[in-house]
């Protein structure tokens, strides 16, 4: 059935995103990986809306809007860090530990 293929695609995209968040050291690439996960969610929602009606597509619109706001804040914080440390490598953030 067609629905399953979309769900599989979303699952693969989700795994790629999770891998990216865990492995990547560059702050911007981590943000992009989070975006991949959110897009996996959108594919899921739209695929399910073939079963259950429009609600899923409306939800996908909400997700897109919120993701844009979130990435805006995230990039602002990354820029702030870059100005102070001249690097956006997440592993180099080691002020806080214990």
């Amino acid at each position: 059935m067609l629905l399953n293929q979309f769900l599989l695609l979303a699952a693969v995209l989700f795994c790629v995103g999770v891998y990216g968040v865990i492995v990547r050291k560059n702050g911007v690439l981590v943000l992009m990986s989070v975006e991949l996960i959110l897009n996996a969610v959108n594919i899921n929602l739209i695929a399910f809306s073939t079963l259950w009606g429009l609600a899923g597509q409306v939800f996908a619109l909400f997700v897109i809007a919120v993701a844009a706001a979130e990435v805006g804040v995230g990039l602002a914080i990354v820029i702030l860090i870059y100005r102070n440390k001249r690097s956006i490598d997440i592993d180099e953030l080691d002020e806080l530990k214990g």
Binding site: V41, A47, G56, V63
Partner: peptide, 15 residues
């Protein structure tokens, strides 16, 4: 990251 997990869970629950 955690919001994305929550959202994936919500999508599956919706499905």
């Amino acid at each position: 990251f955690s919001s994305a997990f929550l959202l994936y869970g919500i999508a599956l629950t919706y499905g």
